[in-house]
């Protein structure tokens, strides 16, 4: 960054230094004695995550690695999905049981209005947090660009139980900060009108979570 004398940058930084001289800095040490590095057995993590997701009005579908394809096909059939979008890096065997419809593989040059025409989207996920019922997407090839899991009205998200952490600190520690990351806790919602909760405003109005308990 080139430094121009009299620039706003220099002025603001100068003001901050002046302020810190005028009002002495209080001593402080950050005590991180809150809970971190927690672990729970598989069964309890699954129960906790499921409880939280259901509380957010998301649909939860437990399955095993073997039954992933038929579980996803079941969800898509139930939601009457004809055209489903997938990121380029998604394991295509997951859609092996989906018949009678079209699978559209996403790429960066597909304009947003065309994503709007999809009935739904299937993606994997990076990490999940059981205590808050949060799924983290990080833009990896099996999750795709952010627009793909945003514009369609249905998001079918596959979560491997091995990627489910107990709390927020444990989940965040598994992320790569520089990747574009989205935290999803249930379908979109608003309480802006008389504080009455309405599920589904701009993001997907339906969130189906497929949890693979042995993956």
């Amino acid at each position: 960054m080139t430094v121009t004398p009299g620039s706003a940058r220099e002025a603001v930084l100068g003001r901050i230094r002046d302020a810190l001289t005028l009002a002495p800095k209080p001593d402080t040490t950050v005590d991180r004695s809150y809970r971190t590095s927690r672990t729970l057995p598989d069964k309890q993590r699954l129960e906790l995550l499921t409880d939280r997701l259901v509380d957010y009005k998301a649909q939860v579908h437990p399955c095993t690695a073997d039954t992933t394809a038929e579980t996803i096909a079941g969800v898509l059939a139930e939601r009457r999905v004809r055209t489903v979008g997938v990121p380029a890096g998604l394991d295509r065997s997951w859609l092996a049981a989906f018949d009678g419809g079209t699978v559209q593989v996403d790429s960066a040059d597909v304009p947003a209005p065309r994503l709007d025409a999809l009935d739904g989207v299937v993606t994997a996920s990076a990490v999940a947090c059981a205590e808050t019922g949060t799924i983290f997407l990080d833009g990896s090839p099996d999750q795709g660009r952010r627009a793909l899991s945003l514009v369609p009205d249905l998001h079918v998200c596959v979560v491997d139980l091995s990627s489910v952490e107990v709390g927020v600190p444990e989940a965040l520690a598994r992320l790569v900060p520089e990747r574009p990351t989205t935290l999803i806790s249930g379908p979109s919602a608003t309480s802006d009108i008389e504080l009455e909760r309405v599920e589904g405003v701009h993001g997907p109005r339906t969130l189906d979570v497929v949890i693979r308990t042995d993956a």
Partner: peptide, 14 residues
């Protein structure tokens, strides 16, 4: 809420 429905994190341009 235990967590708000959506949180976005981005770093510059991807």
């Amino acid at each position: 809420e235990r967590m708000n429905p959506y949180t976005s994190l981005w770093t510059g341009v991807t």
